[in-house]
Amino acid sequence: MFEARLAKGAIFKKILEAVKDLLTEASWDCGDMGITLQAMDNAHVSLVSLNLRSDGFDKYRCDRNLTMGMNLGSMSKILKCAGNDDIVTIRAQDNPDTVTFVFESENGEKQSDYEMKLMSLDLEHLQIPETEYACVVKMPAGEFARICRDLSQFGDSIVISCSKQGVKFSASGDIGSANVKLAQSSNVDKEEEAVTIEMQEPVSFTYACRYLNFFTKATPLSAQVKLSMSPEYPLMVEYAIDDIGQIRYFLAPKIED
């Protein structure tokens, strides 16, 4: 059987919020090492890759590798039934048709279980190589969400340019243009408020606002976001998830036709 118990059940609630607008359905692959999910959006422009390590769970048992196809809208509905402080357990048999979500209140006085039908999904699984990126920007996740939201008012695209001086976000359209520049933090008391840039070479790429705004739904998961860019390669937007794993979004840059 499969059983994964997480005392901080709110993490599951936040993960669903971070993927449900971008993906309609996805396979959750469960094995000894933990739970992974990889899926493309409907337009196949972006890719979500989620990794939750088994040692990050309060209890984890996986007798046989499982692939559970789920409708994420349905899963999100169920996780909305969990309280923010609830302990969440996901349970399934070895060849499951259904998955069960169990929510327990902190004091143990309330327990609910929700059973959801699984789907058979035939999804392409991609190999994402580890890459050295030309630029890696780490910045407060809330700041990135704010910039994406603000600049989306000006056009469909945001240009992200990174140099030694800092990182610049730009957008332009019918009403005018906007630029937001962030310098690398010189003196930071709190690590989570820092802007740091690791650069091999300066880069400048154009990305669709629509997708960046989908990615920032993961903001409640993490204080910081990491943006990694290289020529001829998709942008990687990564949010750490406590000490259990991370969610990564990949987005192909816009190029001149």
Binding site: V45, L47, P129, A208, F250, A252, I255, D257
Partner: peptide, 14 residues
Amino acid sequence: KQKQRSIASFFGGS
């Protein structure tokens, strides 16, 4: 005019 490649094409997919 700008276009976007399929994300799969970067990772060896179709």
